[in-house]
């Protein structure tokens, strides 16, 4: 059985397996063949979409304990049950960070909404997920989104983005709004404060403002 490897000797090498190619005997044979290549490296097995069985984990751990020269560091997986099984057996197992972010930040009901018009005073647009506005947001208009908000025009109205989230961003080609709410954090701007290519971002609980030019 042929498997793919990822990574370097310095940082660590991952053996990529999934539902189609996972087999204990196959892994054992592959590792025996590549023993020279894996010598001295941290070694991980990435298991995607395949629920591991207790005996498979035990057999692999046993196998690697006899393999000298290979430092077996455990599993990496996208399934919670695999992690729980490994933890119960005392074997290190990480949930893939990408999957972790996905499960934390984006639910399957979230939408991406595209609005192709200028939002005028009194208009209100909401989206459970991201919102892209191909037009302006005029003073008195309101925008609410569970995800990020991108305004391909002038943003002069009120935007509340990243509702209920810890990370998010608002972008606008031109920004002249008095107030902005992002991930529950409020930002206030001075009258006549204008930004070109404006970007407000909340990451790790901190607000970051980026812009090409302040004022015109």
């Amino acid at each position: 059985m042929e498997f793919k490897l990822r990574g370097t000797n310095v940082i660590g090498i991952e053996l990529l397996t999934n539902r189609d190619n996972f087999s204990v005997e196959g892994i054992k044979q592959f590792v025996s063949e590549k023993r020279q290549l894996l010598k001295g490296a941290r070694f991980l097995i990435l298991v995607e979409d395949y629920p591991l069985k207790r005996e498979e984990v035990e057999e692999l751990v046993n196998f690697f304990s006899k393999e000298e020269g290979i430092t077996f560091c455990g599993f990496k997986t996208n399934l919670k049950e695999n992690r729980e099984l490994c933890v119960s057996l005392g074997v290190p197992c990480d949930i893939s960070t990408l999957e972790l972010e996905k499960s934390k930040e984006r639910s399957p009901t979230e939408e991406v909404k595209l609005v192709k018009k200028t939002l005028r005073s009194g208009d209100k647009i909401t989206s459970t997920g991201d919102l892209v506005i191909m037009g302006d947001v005029n003073p008195g208009a309101e925008v609410e989104a569970g995800g990020d908000v991108f305004v391909l025009g002038s943003l002069r109205g009120f935007v509340r983005a990243g509702i209920g989230k810890s990370e998010g961003e608002v972008r606008a080609l031109y920004f002249e709004a008095p107030r902005l709410e992002l991930c529950g954090k409020e930002m206030e701007f001075e009258r006549k404060e204008r930004f070109i290519n404006f970007r407000a971002k909340v990451k790790s609980g901190k607000i970051k403002l980026e812009h090409l030019k302040r004022g015109i």
């Binding site: 005028r120 005073s121 009194g122 208009d123 005029n138 003073p139 008195g140």
Partner: peptide
């Protein structure tokens, strides 16, 4: 002036 513009903008939206 801004107050007039905001109201005009609302009216334009209603006409649309």
């Amino acid at each position: 002036e801004m107050a007039s513009i905001r109201d005009a903008d609302r009216v334009i939206g209603l006409c649309e």
